[in-house]
Amino acid sequence: MAGELTYHDQENIENTKRMRAILRELPLFCRDFFTGIETRTSARTRLAYAYDLKTFFEYLHRENPVLSKTPIRSLTIDVLEEITLQDIEEYMDYLKCYDTDSRSDVTNAERGIMRKISSLKSFYNYYFRREMIKNNPAALVELPKIHDKEIIRFEVDEVAQFLDEVDDGKDLTDRQKKFHERTRVRDLAMMTLMLGTGIRVSECVGINISDVDFHVDGIRIHRKGGKEVIIYFGDEVEAALRDYMNEREKITAEPGSEDALFLSLQNKRINVRSVEKMVKKYAQIVTPLKKITPHKLRSTYGTNLYRETGDIYLVADVLGHADVNTTKKHYAAIEDQRRRSARDKVKLREP
């Protein structure tokens, strides 16, 4: 529909609204920071910064005897000068487990702590580089060491079992089977598409009907940051998509979702959370010991593509990784297997 906002545009608007709502709870001087980074960051990134800074200032207000007497909104930029390296290190320890007004026992693992401290470093750097503060204690903080996590993904036989379960739903509960009768074709199309192309769940739910072109077997998606790319799919994906498209043509979508490809049972564009629940529902039947998420479907595709091609640069490009080193880190074990297999490939002398 002409003039209709894309899913990506709608997400940017919603994220901007959420960010502005949080900004109204932060000290006034924080507006300078968000204005300064607007041209080089996405709305989603700025929202993440807002959440992280909200946690930091709530910590100061709750734990610092002096600052607790001043409302967060009324804090001035001078407060950044008063914070010491020890204060920030204590904040890092606090992040492991804390309570908020709305939640208790909030926890952060290594990566969560690193992200929040990285946000704080960027925040301090902004004001320090502009000579609005003289001291930068955040620059002295050492980020926590990140231990590599085991990469969880489907094995080849598990992929087939997973798609079979999505297709027939024979092991679902009686209640789930009732819904499965109405969602089977859609669910199979989405799971086949994600496993067959490696797209992100946000990219999947953002696809419009007009983004699909069966003449070239390609789908237009919006990558993180808003970049538009064409992802190509194979025969299995095409078959699943065509089945769903035939069904989709008969559905009248709710206003605002007319061009959305994948719809919820309420005939609105399906959201990320619903897809996460969908993956969990089917995966826990097939692999109950593995925590399979939409991102694990992406990892499964990347692994299979790398095993078939051995081209890490192709995998990085198809998955939309900005840095090939990110891809190498994820598939280092497979790369090592390939290097080991090379040892007997070259014969020096005939036996």
Rank of each mutant, 00 (worst) to 15 (best):
Y59Q: 02
H180Y: 03
K149T: 07
R186C: 04
T183N: 12
H61F: 11
V279H: 07
N125V: 05
V106W: 11
F57N: 10
N271V: 11
Y232P: 08
K54R: 14
E308L: 15
F162G: 04
V315H: 08
S74D: 13
L265S: 11
L305W: 08
T197I: 07
I334L: 15
F33R: 04
D164Y: 04
Y49P: 14
P294G: 03
K268T: 14
Y301G: 05
E236A: 13
D32M: 15
L75S: 08
L80M: 12
R223N: 04
A139G: 02
K149E: 12
H61K: 13
K277V: 11
L314H: 08
R20M: 15
R24T: 08
T293E: 02
A189E: 01
A322C: 07
E25C: 13
V185T: 14
A109G: 15
R153L: 14
Y49N: 11
C30I: 06
G320R: 06
F123G: 09
V201H: 01
G320P: 08
Y232E: 01
A2I: 13
K227Q: 03
E82C: 13
I83H: 04
T309H: 07
P288G: 04
Q10P: 06
L241K: 01
R115K: 09
K224H: 05
A260G: 08
T173L: 09
H8P: 02
G198K: 06
E63I: 14
G234F: 05
L80E: 02
R220I: 05
R307G: 11
E89S: 13
L5M: 11
L67S: 09
F123V: 05
D101G: 15
S264G: 05
I209H: 02
G206V: 00
I13T: 07
E14W: 10
R20P: 10
V237K: 02
C204P: 04
T173H: 02
I270T: 09
N271L: 03
I251N: 01
I219D: 00
I292K: 04
L95Y: 04
D32L: 14
E81R: 06
V141P: 01
I37Y: 09
T76H: 10
K296L: 04
R111N: 15
Y127N: 10
R73E: 13
Y301S: 07
E238H: 12
K250V: 06
G302T: 01
D164R: 13
K268H: 10
D78I: 09
S122M: 12
L95E: 00
R307C: 11
R343F: 13
E276Q: 14
D344G: 15
N136S: 05
R184F: 07
T173I: 06
K291E: 06
Y98K: 07
G225T: 03
I334H: 07
D52M: 08
G169A: 07
E90G: 13
K145Y: 13
I209Y: 05
D323E: 06
E165I: 07
Y98V: 08
D336L: 15
